[in-house]
Write a protein that binds this DNA or RNA. Structure first.
Length: 278
DNA sequence: CTTTGGCTCTCCCTTACGTCA
DNA sequence: TATGACGTAAGGGAGAGCCAA
């Protein structure tokens, strides 16, 4: 799936929705070669460390005060699947991680390694992450390490945050799309009813009136306003092959003024060139 | 040139923790 | 105080691309 599908408006909503699984294709391409610069065997040490916010630190063991002020107490859990390249480089960006190891890795409640403490990001951390996400919904390895350093987090934590943030964005967009389709369905249902009534009238007029008055206009019928999907040439109402959405930016914008403009402009599919802008 | 194994990435689903009503 | 709902950090699997052998 192309990551470029995720676009942000001012509200931070993703405006493009891509359906279907498989994320690796263009993702790797976007990464380019920079992600491979420091490819080395992964660190095999069990090194999951979880930073805890201030309050947790205050209640934790007093000897763990070596980290930054907002995330100092950490917990190491065995069985981590992998450590990222930049973390294996020996340049542990987070002093949090170092503090965790120095602090005996949360010995107070991690006897068997089965419990996992959960990090709560501080408001400042969340705000900065949010800002960066608005700029780019993905990070290259360099950006990730830099941001992790800035936030006193591990690159892996930054990566996970972005991953979860993308998921939330996509979920929101799915809800928006769902609502849009619902309205579309309602509109179609209503239009179908209207056409059925019109057909009924025409049939009755056919037998009751002279041929000259056999049209709704001639009979004085007031035509209902055409639904939004009928205001487009049929050729533009094409399902986008990549996302399977009904095409036609004008239609989308007319049908749902609340829908963000960028979203409405997506998924325009030209049936002649077979290209989609989604 | 093709194949293959190892590596990375992201996405997706799930789990589990922290918070709040 | 106990509890269920909810938000979210993190674990782990799967699929895909890249690279070297």
């Amino acid at each position: 799936m192309a990551q470029e599908d995720v676009h942000l408006d001012d509200a931070g909503l993703a405006l493009g929705l891509s359906l279907g699984g498989g994320g690796g294709a263009s993702d790797a391409a976007r990464q380019g070669t920079c992600s491979r610069l420091s490819r080395e065997p992964r660190a095999l040490e069990p090194s999951l460390t979880l930073s805890m916010p201030d309050e947790a630190t205050a209640t934790g063991s007093g000897g763990c005060g070596g980290g930054p002020s907002h995330s100092v107490s950490s917990l190491s859990v065995a069985g981590v699947k992998r450590e990222r390249v930049e973390e294996a480089d020996g340049e542990r960006a987070s002093s949090t991680a170092a503090a965790a190891r120095a602090c005996g890795a949360g010995a107070e409640d991690d006897d068997d390694g089965s419990t996992r403490k959960k990090l709560r990001l501080t408001k400042e951390q969340s705000a900065l992450l949010e800002d960066r996400f608005k700029e780019h919904s993905t990070l290259n390895p360099k950006q990730k390490v830099a941001l992790a350093k800035q936030l006193n987090l591990r690159p892996r934590q930054v990566e996970v945050w972005f991953q979860n943030r993308r998921a939330r964005t996509k979920l929101k967009q799915t809800e928006v799309d769902c609502e849009f389709l619902k309205r579309c369905c309602e509109s179609l249902t209503e239009e179908n009813r209207r056409l059925q009534r019109e057909l009924q009238e025409l049939r009755s007029l056919k037998f009751a009136a002279p041929p000259a008055a056999a049209t709704p206009a001639a009979a004085g019928a007031v035509p209902a306003p055409a639904p939004f999907y009928m205001q487009l040439p049929a050729a533009t109402l094409t399902l986008c092959p990549s996302c399977e959405r009904l095409g036609g930016p004008a239609a989308a914008a007319k049908a749902d003024p609340d829908r963000p403009k960028a979203a409405a402009s997506h998924h325009f599919f030209n049936p002649f060139t077979h290209s989609a802008a989604c």
